[in-house]
Simulated assay, not measured.
Amino acid sequence: MFHTNPVYKKELKISVRTIKTAMIILAYNMILAVIGLFVFYASFDYKSTIAGVVNYHNMMNLYEILSVIEFALILFIVPAITSGAISGERERQTLDILLTTKLTPLQIIRGKLASSISLILLIVVSSLPILSIVFSIGGIRIIDLIQLMMCIVVTAIFVGSIGLFFSVLFRRTTVSTVFTYGTVIFLVLGTIGILTGVYLIINVRIDTNVVEDAAHRIAPNLGNMILMLLVNPAITLLSLFSNQFKNKEFLSDFLNNYGQCNRVVTEHWFGISVTIQLLISIILIIMSARLLDPLKRGNTKRGNSRRSKTKRKKNNQY
């Protein structure tokens, strides 16, 4: 368990004792509060409120805006926390000492990831009073807020595992941070960009082939390429909104822009997407532990040296 992991205990104690954590929480909640209060004020017309007319759709918009802002801040904060978890130990020359302990590389990776997720949970819980603005008038249920928190935690684990993988793969924190942010940007914007580019290319080819029969023109259909968006955290949040507001056509309309998508996948998009992201996170954690294991790296180096020696012997015989 995480509470018995020494790395988790150490990282958690260090993080809560530094001014950096307090400043992150303060800046996070200030940004969320200022934007939330501004949107709350702008969403309601003073005259209609005096007349006793309340538009609950405005509260839905406020919930969506606050959720998107919080989601975007999490995507921005998590890579900064996790991308230097292992590479920072290398730069401080403490990684070799950590590897000489009785802890396995998997326990070290789990402890680093758990401490980062705990900090994210602290940030998310601290923002609950701001998100509770949406309950002042109604329209949003407690279960909706719990589902949003679950979506944010899963995204934090997904992005955090990516940051840890690059932190193990590269020796410098700067390089691992750049690759982590680049991967997150690719997942959020790059997947949509690829689908849009392929769609436009197919659309141009169809237009050049069509001569006169414009009435029977076939729209481009990307088929299974649309499933690429299952690893896109932003589309996962969009599917959550579709489920919460009982408007599943909202997600399907977006996906149908790129062609026909399987209806079963569309209806269960949130669950499928969360499951895939968690599986990718587990794979990245296991790969990070294998890369961090000095014994396996040593065996690989010894295997390479043995193969090179065998080749030299054969060459000498000839």
Score class of each variant (00 low, 15 high):
Val7Arg: 00
Tyr8Glu: 04
Lys10Glu: 02
Glu11Arg: 11
Lys20Glu: 10
Met23Leu: 14
Tyr28Asn: 00
Val34Met: 14
Phe38Val: 09
Asp45Asn: 11
Asp45Glu: 14
Val53Arg: 12
Asn58Asp: 15
Leu66Ala: 06
Val68Met: 04
Phe71Met: 15
Phe71Arg: 12
Ala72Ile: 10
Ile74Pro: 03
Ile74Gly: 03
Leu75Ala: 05
Phe76Gly: 10
Phe76Arg: 06
Ser83Met: 12
Gly84Asn: 11
Ala85Val: 09
Ile86Phe: 10
Glu89Asn: 05
Gln93Asp: 13
Thr101Tyr: 07
Thr104Lys: 06
Arg110Asp: 00
Gly111Val: 03
Ala114Thr: 04
Ser115Tyr: 03
Ser115Asp: 11
Pro129Ser: 07
Ser136Arg: 12
Ile140Tyr: 01
Ile143Thr: 13
Gln147Pro: 09
Cys151Arg: 07
Ile152Arg: 09
Val154Pro: 00
Val154Tyr: 10
Ile162Glu: 01
Leu164Ala: 01
Ser167His: 05
Ser167Ala: 07
Val168Gln: 00
Arg172Asn: 14
Thr173Pro: 05
Thr174Cys: 02
Ser176Lys: 03
Phe179Arg: 04
Phe179Thr: 06
Leu189His: 10
Ile202Cys: 10
Asn203Gly: 03
Val210Lys: 08
His216Met: 08
Asn221His: 04
Leu222Phe: 09
Ile226Gly: 05
Leu229Lys: 05
Asn232Phe: 06
Pro233His: 06
Pro233Arg: 02
Phe245His: 14
Lys246Val: 13
Asn247Lys: 10
Glu249Asp: 15
Phe250Pro: 06
Leu251Ser: 08
Leu251Gln: 10
Leu255Cys: 12
Asn256Thr: 10
Gly259Arg: 03
Cys261His: 09
Asn262Trp: 01
Arg263Met: 15
Val264Ala: 15
Val265Thr: 06
Thr266Leu: 12
Glu267Ser: 11
Phe270Asn: 00
Ile272His: 08
Ser273Gly: 03
Ser273Asp: 02
Ile276Arg: 07
Gln277Ser: 03
Leu284Tyr: 01
Ala289Ile: 00
Asp293Tyr: 10
Pro294Ile: 06
Lys296Ile: 11
Arg297Cys: 07
Thr310Leu: 05
Arg312Ile: 04
